[in-house]
Design a protein around this nucleic acid. Structure first.
Length: 493
RNA sequence: GGCCCCAUAGACUAGUGGUUAGGUCACGGCCCUUUCAAGGCCGUAGCACGGGUUCAAGUCCCGUUGGGGUCACCA
């Protein structure tokens, strides 16, 4: 039997980092097993589902590089899909669910319930007040045909699944092993709302079966839903898929990852300058590891080595610091041309090239390459390369530390004296010239280097000095140093 | 509270009865270096606790504690 897995988000918000991890594990498993990865939109929540969320989910998955073999092909046209098991929006599969609801009612495995949400809520409150487990009391479970007819004449109904009152429901989770739940704990849950729309626990089963899903890989917050779903499989006489429940991702304080832990949507990570392959690599390591605890994987290696059996059972904490480290690793390891194109949107956003980014592409690439090993985020790129393209912005602290020392003006003048005759203004000759200046003044090289750095770049931190000078060119370097001398003389710094 | 799951350093984890408990991030030190990085070397730090089983337990069993999940006409 071929492997078919699905990612089935409900479109009620952006693509959350936890959802992205679930999608990734499904995708890795599908690719590893040479199976199918299916995207299904679970939009049975009529009030919270939005098309913006559908788009956000698509964008997030595409950015992560998680392509789906079957699923919606368009976020706007819900009819448009790829794959033979569509439609992939649940709201369009209403007839299918109705068919099975009728079947279950006919078999006596489900029944219409005329209790209103308010009445049910009252039961719940009462149970809680008496410290009992809230559970539907079964008012409508044993109605006679006559009673049913009478009640349906005056009002519409929801449909409840008739859960067994005794026995246990078991399944063998790929990650957790054998799991057992007592049926007595499971109430007669609603499978069709009064609106006629099925609930999650029902629609999910119908679709997983109809779409021939072989493995259900999802967060372990769904673990307690599983016995309910299994009951539905059994009632319908269907074989159930294999289940694999992934551990939850937590924030640094041990609570469920949420807004107050910082960025939680993959879109925010894109904006912050992360590379999708780094995010993917990091997320893969949250709850999964190889025998040798390898950290960095080429994309095809991740697919090759991934296995559900090696997924961990315990919850894990999301660590943004390690993600940043990993992003830096990826940035260092791609071609500088590639880095430059990926950083381009962030450079454009910074705005200092005023729309001339494309025509100055090769210049940019040169300086990006110079600084490549220092970037952790793509958003670091504009900040580090800016000095090559804009006028010097003097950093107050750097000025204080290096330009406010005695003799600095004379030192800079000496440097100009040494630089002026240089014809080939490259790293080698500028370094030689600076050393010469140091020698003549009988000072340490650093006494020359630091003032030069600050006068041409405005700060103490930056690229390798002589390479920076070479790229800047003789004309710019001399004019920046002269301008610094002038400002110093006039007391403007 | 009921039910379910989980438990190796601050974080992610390797480990399937016999290991000096390994790797990665973070942290500290040293080296390299004009700066910031990167890199190299070294280091601090861990089997939650208590009972069993066994010649031998991080590893198996039970309990305790702690953490998480879930108890909707949300998914």
């Amino acid at each position: 039997m071929s492997v078919r897995v699905r990612f089935a988000p409900s479109p009620t918000g952006f693509l959350h980092i936890g959802g992205a991890r679930t999608a990734l594990f499904n995708w890795l498993f599908a690719r590893h097993m040479k199976g199918q990865f299916i995207l299904r939109i679970e939009d049975t929540d009529e009030v919270r589902s939005t098309t913006e969320s559908v788009k956000a989910i698509f964008d997030g998955l595409r950015w992560m590089g998680l392509d789906w073999d079957e699923g919606p092909a368009s976020e706007t046209d819900t009819e448009d899909c790829q794959g033979d098991y569509g439609p992939y929006y649940q709201i369009q599969r209403a007839e299918l669910y109705k068919k099975y609801i009728s079947e279950l009612i006919a078999q006596g495995r489900a029944y219409p319930c005329y209790c209103t949400p308010e009445e049910v809520q009252k039961m719940r409150d009462k149970a809680l007040a008496e410290k009992r487990t809230p559970k539907y009391d079964g008012t409508c479970r044993n109605l006679t045909t006559a009673q049913r007819e009478a009640r349906s004449a005056v009002g519409s109904s929801s449909v409840r699944f008739k859960s067994p009152v005794e026995g246990v429901t078991q399944f063998n989770d790929i990650i957790h092993g054998p799991l057992t739940f007592e049926n007595a704990q499971i109430e007669d849950f609603v499978i069709q709302k009064t609106s006629g729309i099925p609930t999650y626990n029902f629609a999910c089963v119908i679709d997983d079966h109809e779409m021939c899903i072989s493995h259900v890989i999802r967060g372990d917050d769904h673990m307690s839903n599983t016995p309910r779903q299994i009951l539905v499989y059994q009632a319908l006489g269907w074989l159930m898929p294999q289940f694999a429940h992934l551990s939850m991702i937590m924030g640094s304080d041990g609570t469920r990852l949420s807004k107050r832990h910082g960025a939680t949507s993959v879109q925010e990570y894109e904006t912050a300058g992360f590379l999708p392959e780094a995010v993917r690599n990091y997320l893969a390591l949250l709850g999964w590891a190889t025998e040798d605890s390898q950290q960095l994987f080429k994309p095809e290696k991740l697919i090759e080595k991934f296995s559900l059996e090696r997924c961990g059972k315990s919850p894990c904490t999301f660590d943004p610091v390690k993600l940043e480290w990993m992003n830096g690793e990826y940035i260092r390891n791609i071609q500088s041309a590639d880095l430059t194109s990926r950083a381009m949107p962030y450079i454009q956003k910074a705005g200092f090239l005023e729309g001339k980014e494309e025509e100055r592409h090769s210049e940019i690439e040169t300086v990006v390459a110079l600084e490549q090993e220092k970037f952790k985020l793509l958003t670091d790129v504009p900040d580090r390369i800016k000095i090559f393209f804009t006028d010097v912005e003097y950093d107050a602290e750097s000025v204080e530390k290096t330009l406010k020392k005695p003799d600095v003006i004379d030192i800079l003048k000496d440097v100009i004296y040494e630089f002026e005759p240089i014809n080939i203004f490259n790293a080698e000759f500028t370094e030689r010239a600076c050393k010469e200046a140091a020698k003549k003044r009988d000072v340490k090289n650093g006494a020359i280097y630091h003032p030069v750095r600050v006068s041409v770049s405005g700060r103490t931190q930056g690229p390798s000095l002589f390479h920076m000078l070479e790229i800047l060119g003789k004309e710019k370097v001399l004019s920046r140093i002269n301008s610094t001398i002038e400002k110093l003389t006039q007391g403007l710094l």
